[in-house]
Write a protein that binds this DNA or RNA. Structure first.
Lengths: 237, 237
DNA sequence: ACCTGAACACCGTTCAAGT
DNA sequence: ACCTGAACACCGTTCAAGT
């Protein structure tokens, strides 16, 4: 184990990020920035300050570089968001796909996927239209999930559409997790909306700690049951 | 019918919006701005220039006022988005809820809802967490849909969760409509992702004109069937 | 009450100059 | 190749002054 560097040292790449000394223009020897360091700093910034705090200026500051330096490694802020998204995709739990039945594997995948992105909803508009080529970990997730569907007896031509349907539900549900508790309070309009008001009251009386989880369970189980009927209708082996 | 005003006239409220003459500071007699005019101008701007073109400055320009004048009627840009959202909610097709069976009513509502907001995806993060009190037309939609679920025999305490589940799927699917056609092209990673690549090819070979519609049909029918089983399991009369 | 005009505190991005 | 520093063309929002 090497001795800790003296304060203000610039000798090692590891300490470059924390180095507070001003750097002159020109290419530094250590390699100050790369995509991995940008991703980690962006993620830390988001955890500390939220997505409003993720600005190119703040990101550069966290990495101790000028904002313009970032553009040697990403071509836009959207690229930074893609890096973060792909990092998060690797956190989604796929373990059940080679250990448990299809229903349970989809269930665990879907809950994990929703939970991860419910803390990162500003990424959803990005993921939803992101070509998989730009996100290798996300693509790796699709490979595992596709193989699980194929092995469960899904007809090949329905696999992508089934995954997309589940994913659409997951993205929408991730937003729902972040909704305020009183989102459905009809307020002064209660008398004008008797059916809705009664339904909202009736749900509230159930006293569920997390109403978003009730809706997610309802929809997810319906999708698992409904999509499950596609299995082995054409494809047999 | 009054004679048309002379060019540059500021005599009537009707011509105030189009009036290109400079207005001095102070309160104008006609009432230049209100929420309805702001909503209409915002919607026109979005249709012409997209959501990138919807800035407070551009909106003010379209209404021939200074940007700061808008803040006498809305307290933030988000308020403008809420006005637009609530206007669009009134366009969602609810007609089948008092004319057709529950399944068909939900089907028409869901397709219409998805179609409207697929052209306005930047509103989805706003709607998804928007208290219904702030959006009367959106609340009116929930009232009609809730009544439809109640009349179809849904247990009262499951109505809101069922609607939320459907809505989550609809929001996610609205994004999917806007995805690029080659979103799932694995590119140079094709060999590393054989199951996914085969599934993508197999879907492509089907030659569907709109793949997003295939996924939407699959998920929606699964949800309608699955949620439909909740009917008359508890509630009887 | 509700407008104008000026100002504020930011944004993301570009680019010449430097090593 | 990859950094700095300055500049650009915007943002949303606030507020004093005006009628």
């Amino acid at each position: 184990m090497p001795a800790p560097p003296a304060p203000g040292s610039t000798a090692t790449g590891e300490t470059a990020v924390e180095d507070l000394a001003r750097r002159r223009a020109g290419r530094p020897v250590g390699g100050v920035l790369d995509k991995s360091r940008i991703t980690r700093a962006a993620l830390e910034l988001v955890e500390k300050k939220g997505y409003d705090g993720l600005t190119m200026a703040a990101l550069a500051r966290a990495l101790n570089v000028a904002p313009s330096a970032l553009y040697n490694h990403v071509k836009s802020k959207r690229d930074v968001l893609v890096l973060v998204e792909d990092h998060l995709a690797a956190l989604v739990d796929l373990s059940a796909f080679d250990a448990e039945p299809w229903e349970e594997a989809v269930r665990k995948w879907a809950w994990s996927y929703r939970d991860v992105f419910s803390r990162h909803t500003p990424l959803i508009p990005v993921i939803a239209v992101l070509p998989v080529t730009d996100a290798p970990q996300t693509l790796a997730m699709y490979e595992t999930v596709s193989a699980g569907f194929r092995d469960a007896g899904f007809p090949e031509e329905r696999i992508v559409s089934s995954i997309v349907a589940l994913e659409s539900f997951i993205f929408g549900s991730a937003y729902d997790v972040t909704a305020p508790a009183d989102i459905f309070d009809p307020g002064s309009m209660a008398e004008a909306t008797p059916s809705f008001t009664a339904a909202v009251r009736s749900l509230a009386e159930q006293g569920h700690e997390r109403p978003a989880d009730v809706a997610f369970t309802l929809g997810l189980e319906a999708l698992i049951t409904g999509l499950g009927t596609l299995r082995n209708q054409v494809h047999q082996h």
